[in-house]
Structure formats: C-alpha cells, structure tokens
Design a protein around this nucleic acid. Structure first.
Lengths: 198, 198, 198, 198
DNA sequence: AATGAATGAGCCTTCATTCAT
DNA sequence: GATGAATGAAGGCTCATTCAT
C-alpha cells in the first residue's frame, strides 16, 4: 500500500499503471487484484486509510484543549504537522477527487465522515453555546479553519519544503481564532499553546 | 475549447479522450492537433487561458479599492464571484496539477504568474509600508487570503450549489481583514463594500 | 460434475472459468485439479460420461426390437427422448468439439466409440444381410438416421421447448424407415411400435 | 475477414486472439476495431455474411426446379455442394452458437432469417396445397430436409474429406423425397436432376 | 485429500498520434 | 487548413494453475 501511495502520487492515479505498483511493491498483479479487486478499489482503500489516519489525530487534538482558543490552535497545528509529517498521505488526500471513487469506497467514506463531522459538530456547538465561538454557517467554519491550512499544505507539498512551520502555524492559528473566536480581547496578547515540532 | 474544458472536467484530463472532445466540439481530430499539437498542449493552453481570465479581474478588483480593507474585501468577493460565475473554469484550475503540464505551458504560466505576483506584491508592500497590513511571510498572506476562498470554492463546486454567496463573502472578507489588517478597530463595524450577486 | 456441466453449457467451455464452477459446485479449486487435472481434463471427462450415458440406452433400444423397422423406430424414439430427458447432457454433447478435447479424452472416446460402432455395425450388417435394410454407405446411414434427430434436438434445445415430442418421433421414425428400410410395402400402413413419452 | 474466418475456425472464436487475426490478415489491431468494434462484432458480421452466402444459393436452387421432387433434390444437392465448396464458411456457421452473438448481430440475423423463412415457407405451402408434399409440422420439415445434410456436413468437415459426394447427394435427396413427398410412385424410378460436382 | 492465496502470462480494448487525401 | 482512417504501444484485468498448509 505504501508502494501504491507513492506511485499514485508520482503521476496521478489515472496515469499510474498496475505494473508500476507491482514493481515497486514486489507484489504480483494477481495478488493486488485478489485483495483490492481493481485499481480503483485500491485507490479507494488508500483514500479511506489516509483519511482515517488524519481524522484520528484531528479529533484527538481537540481533547487536550483547555478552551476554545486552544482547541482551534491545536487543530491548526495538528493539521500542518500532519501534512509535514505525512507528505505522501497528505498529497494523496489533497489530490484525489472523491467523486471519482468507487461507490463502495464512497460508502466507507461517508461512514467515516459521518462520525467525524458528528464529533466536530458537537464540539463547535458546545463552544457556540458557551459563547466562545461565533455562530457561523458550517461552510464558513470549514473555509476559515481548514482553508488556510490546506492552501499552505498545497504550497509546501508543491514546493517540497516546509519553511518556518512553527511561525506559520502560530500565524494561522492566530488568524483562525480571530476569525472564529467570539472573544473581544486583543488577539495579539493571547498565550501561545501549541506544541513545537520535533 | 469550451468543449475541451467540459470534457476535461467531466472525468479528468487523463481519462478524457480526444475522441470525446471531438464529438462534443464538432471538430475533427486533425484540427485539434493542428492547433494545439497534443492533448497535453490543449490542457496547458486551457489552463493558461483560465488563469489569465481569473487574474485579470483579480488585479482589477484591487484598483477600485479606497483602502487596504476594501482591497482585501474586494479580492475575496471577486474570488468567490468568479468561481460562482465561471464554475467550469474554476473547476479546471482547481483540479489541474500544474506540475504535470508541458514545459511550454509551464513557461507561459511562469510568465503569467510573474506579472501577477509582481503587481500583487507591490500592492501588499505598499500597504505594509503604510501600516495598513501586517508584515507576514508571503505564504501566510496566500494561505489566509486565498485559502478560505479556495476551500469554499471546492465545497461549492463539489456540491453543485452556491448557498448564501453574499453572507459567506462578507464573512470571509471580514475574516481575511482580521487576519491580515493591522487595524485594531472592531471588524464588525467595518463598512461593507462588496458588490451583490444578481 | 453437474455444476461443471451447467457452467460449461451456460457460456461455453472456453468462456467458463474454474472459479464459476467452484462457486456453483461448492468445491474448492484444488479439489477440482486433484480429481481432473485441468479444466480440459474436466471437459473431457464430462464428454465421455455424457456419451456413455447416451450410448448405453441407444444400444439397449435395439435389443428389444422385434424386427429392423421396430429397431429403427426405437433408435429414433430413444434419441429424441434422451435429449428431452437430459437436456443439459445433450446440449453439452451437441456443442462440444471433440477435436479440441485432450488426447487422453480423445483416446477414451475412441475406445467408447469403437465398441459402440462395432455393435451398431453388427446389427446393421445383419439387417442388410437379411434384406431388411438397404445397403448404403455408412455415412449415409448416420446422416439419415441420426441427422434428423440431431437437427430436431438442436431446435428444441435452442428454443427451450419440446412441442409434440411424440408426433415428431413418429414422423422421424417413419421417415427413417422409408429412407433405410428395404421393404416395398407402403410406409403409411406400418404399425406404430414406439413407446409413448409420459 | 477471410483471415478471421480461418482463425475462428482453427480453435473457436473464444480461443482465437485478435493478435492471431492481425498476424494472418496483415491488418492492425486498431483497424479491426475501427471496422467491427470488437471481436464479438467481427464474429457477428462474419456469421451474417456466411449465412447470407448460403441462403442466396439455397433459394436460387428452388427456382430452377420443375416440380416438388426436383425442388427437394435441388435443395439437398445445393446444401451438400455448398458445404464442400465452402468448407470454412460451413464450419463457421455450423459451429457458431447464434445465441452467443451480439444483440446487433442477432438483429441482423433475425432480419435475414425472416426473409428466408418467408420464401421457403411460401414454396412449401404451395407444394402442400398442390398435394405434392405432405403436411407436416415445420420442425419436421427442417429436421428431415436439413438434418441429414447437416449431419453429413459435420462428418465431412470433421474428417476433412468428401467421399462420394454425388452418391451421397443422390441418396439424401432420395430419402428426403421419400420422407416429404406425397407421391406413392417408387422412389427408385425417379429421374435424377441434380448437377454433378466438378 | 482438500484448501485457497498467490502467480504472471496473455488477452481484449483504448487512444494518442500520424499522414495521405 | 481540415479530415478521419489507420496504427500499435500500453494498460487493466482475467484466470488456469501451483503449492504450502
């Protein structure tokens, strides 16, 4: 699967031949089909696995947060860290069109997202109720929280470097809080809570 | 070219056959090769054309802005409007991997971006000099200004609807200003400057 | 073997996969290879078994016949009955190209046919000697006796119905006798001797 | 098409690879697909062409016949002659399962057969009306007229020889007339009308 | 004897590209 | 410039067969 991930990333799923995956993974054509059914099946399984890995830590990041601000910051920092730590998975998730996935994979994906969105939604709802986060349409939450991280991730993955991860993480975390937080306190004075990258 | 755009979007450039484009465009195989040299050539020309269209208005949006805040808002609003008004072009630009383009197209792209970034950079530098916009790394500017718009664009293009364009535009413009603006004034009181969608 | 018969009939031996036979027969891939050696081996064994079943009754039909005419009639009637009673076997025998069978199976087949032709030949020779059946080339015997039955069998198996089995059997038996019998008596007045199908 | 015919006959349509046809016909893979769409398409077109060739002469054989008896004889003789003269076409028609053909080919086939059966039916009806041919179920007509010819054809094509074509043709024509003709005159005295094979 | 995962050769088919008209 | 028939390399996938358990 590692091999497939690298091959798919190298030139896209469409342009990647089964033969290339076999060569890199030392597996036979037949065994791939035995396990995944088709190239599309493999692509789908790969996407689900990647998303599962990402979501697991994303939700976990929230649990250690003392308040809404720290939560938002933790999400942003985890997001960037994960991308930098797992560039191959990140690349694949970022580039794959989920609407081109097999129905079977889309189903698994829907199940995965259902739980994820429920947990995320619960946290946001609670924060909104507590007056810590502004009430905004869901799409705006996503755009403001995830958008900058994804955009930065695309840049980093495209250019192959990760300059100033920590400063960027602080800046994006800060901006996300300004955008989402209900607080009126000056953002600049906020205490820094993120973990440092190893 | 309209036909090629639609075909490429339908299932990706790789999965789109020249025959499909011919059928949709009523052109012959030969004429496409006569004009574009190859499928990749067509894909590259299409990308450049789309980017040109987008960038033209993006820079223009800045010109009518009275101050930094209005400028940022205009950029956000233009971005969202353009995506909603040109879903096919937007889809294509969003999905195409520029690193898979032909050298020739990449060259044209570089030239295009050079001018664009120069103009954008000039405006931002001026605003930073004037103390209107905070001094941040360039990648953070991009992430905070473009990221949310792109993320929202992806959602809208994926789901096929554009709910609450104007409210979202306001929210994203507001958030972008909070993130980038040097001002300490409460964002909520800021004057609204965007155009309304018809 | 029943399962293999049905699978082979469904779409031809070539187009039938071992996997399909396994699924239908609830046997494992390995056990099929253990018993038959290969798909071709299975196809050959199946053909021999089918032919054996057919020939057994064919010769038996002759034994109960009082004279040449009754013998001919019994053969025709048995032929049609067997096809109607064993459509799957009949279909398989009719459709299989014996020259594509494995050498091993062809050998078994030759042995089978040798005994069969010897017995049939003996009866015909005796009848010819007795002046009951005309002296004709062997290929003509086969064509006139077997041909109409096979043709009707193909029609019935193709269309999936068996209309008027008994009337047809009488007509074909009658015609076969007119074709082969040496008698000068008007065929129309001949007594009917066949068994009726239930 | 000649090449395809030979290849298909050599080992069956299923077992015949496109590559083999290309090699024998000196055509490229693409051109075959350009003209026939698929291997199945080619098989279908081939079947239709073969049937058309056979039927053309079959109906023509009837036209020159002075009476029912000569008509029956002409059919039998034409049938055997055509098989001997066109062994490849005959083999292919005899071995191909029409129910495995593509819908498109089956449609063309149905049209072909419609006209053929109509013409044949008209002639038989007229002869029955005139009292020249006995009234029998259609399937019996086919079995008695076509069956022996097909059976003999199979033998000849299988063994690769055509011994005593003319004697056999006379014998089968004679038998067919005994089976179908309404006349009571002794068949042996009937004038011979068939053409001799060169 | 039975099992079924693994193998990989070979097949049908697609499709970008060429080039004679 | 335009056309579209011809080309053939390359790809996804199937499936008969093997063999360790």
């Amino acid at each position: 699967m590692r091999a497939a991930l690298e091959c798919f990333n190298a030139r896209g799923v469409e342009a990647c031949s089964i033969a290339a995956i076999c060569e890199r993974s030392q597996a036979s054509v037949g065994s791939i089909y035995h396990h995944f059914g088709s190239k599309e099946g493999l692509a789908g399984a790969l996407y689900c696995e990647g998303l599962r890995r990402f979501q697991r830590g994303y939700l976990a990041a929230l649990e250690g947060a003392a308040d809404a601000r720290q939560g938002i910051g933790a999400l942003v920092r985890y997001h960037l860290s994960w991308v930098v730590d797992n560039p191959d998975w990140a690349r694949y998730l970022l580039r794959t069109r989920t609407d081109a996935l097999q129905p079977q994979a889309r189903q698994a994906l829907a199940t995965l997202n259902e739980g994820f969105y429920a947990a995320m939604g619960a946290w946001f709802s609670a924060q909104v109720q507590a007056g810590a986060i502004r009430r905004l349409p869901r799409s705006v939450y996503v755009a403001l929280l995830v958008g900058p991280c994804q955009e930065w991730a695309r840049m980093v993955l495209r250019d192959g470097s990760n300059p100033h991860m920590d400063e960027v993480a602080d800046a994006l975390a800060d901006a996300a809080w300004r955008a989402l937080g209900a607080s009126t306190e000056p953002a600049a004075a906020a205490p820094r809570t993120g973990r440092s990258r190893p």
